[in-house]
Amino acid sequence: MPLTTSDAATAAVWCDRCGDAVTAGSHGACAAARVLEPPRFCAYCRRRMKVQVLPAGWAAVCVEHGETRG
């Protein structure tokens, strides 16, 4: 079941690039890398996501929270 916007604002506790807690240190390098790369971890449950890079962007799928596109 995909998250709604209000759920996403309160539930994102994991870095979607490295998988560590958002509150655990600085994630400046992760933010810089995310400009060019798709997410690798679900920001809501920390599961590794299936990522597909497409010509027009990317699609990342969490088995629990559904698909995210960018």
Score class of each variant (00 low, 15 high):
54 L>A: 07
16 D>H: 14
67 E>K: 09
18 C>F: 01
67 E>I: 06
11 A>W: 14
12 A>D: 05
56 A>D: 15
33 A>E: 08
37 E>P: 06
34 R>G: 03
39 P>D: 09
3 L>V: 13
36 L>C: 10
29 A>R: 13
30 C>L: 02
61 V>W: 13
53 V>N: 06
44 Y>C: 05
33 A>G: 09
67 E>V: 12
21 A>C: 08
7 D>Q: 14
45 C>M: 02
27 H>Q: 04
15 C>P: 06
49 M>C: 06
65 H>T: 01
8 A>D: 04
20 D>N: 14
39 P>E: 07
2 P>A: 13
53 V>F: 02
61 V>Q: 13
17 R>V: 10
57 G>H: 00
14 W>C: 01
13 V>S: 10
66 G>I: 12
56 A>S: 12
26 S>I: 04
26 S>K: 02
65 H>F: 03
40 R>T: 06
38 P>Q: 05
58 W>R: 10
33 A>H: 02
49 M>D: 04
55 P>E: 01
58 W>L: 08
68 T>M: 05
4 T>H: 09
39 P>L: 14
22 V>C: 07
66 G>T: 04
63 V>P: 09
1 M>K: 15
29 A>W: 03
69 R>P: 13
64 E>I: 10
35 V>H: 01
22 V>Q: 07
53 V>Y: 03
64 E>M: 11
52 Q>F: 08
8 A>V: 09
40 R>E: 08
38 P>W: 00
65 H>V: 00
51 V>R: 06
26 S>N: 05
43 A>D: 01
40 R>M: 09
47 R>V: 01
24 A>K: 07
70 G>S: 09
10 T>K: 15
41 F>R: 01
52 Q>Y: 08
40 R>A: 09
18 C>D: 09
22 V>L: 14
5 T>I: 15
64 E>R: 12
30 C>R: 00
43 A>W: 00
38 P>A: 15
55 P>A: 03
24 A>M: 09
1 M>S: 12
28 G>P: 02
5 T>V: 15
62 C>P: 05
44 Y>A: 11
34 R>Q: 09
30 C>A: 07
55 P>H: 02
69 R>F: 06
26 S>E: 07
23 T>A: 13
63 V>A: 13
24 A>D: 05
13 V>N: 10
36 L>W: 09
39 P>A: 11
4 T>C: 14
33 A>C: 07
19 G>Y: 14
23 T>D: 15
29 A>M: 10
15 C>M: 05
51 V>S: 02
29 A>H: 08
13 V>Y: 10
59 A>N: 08
3 L>M: 11
1 M>A: 14
22 V>P: 06
12 A>Y: 00
50 K>V: 08
5 T>Q: 14
70 G>T: 03
35 V>A: 10
44 Y>M: 08
61 V>N: 10
47 R>L: 06
36 L>V: 10
48 R>M: 09
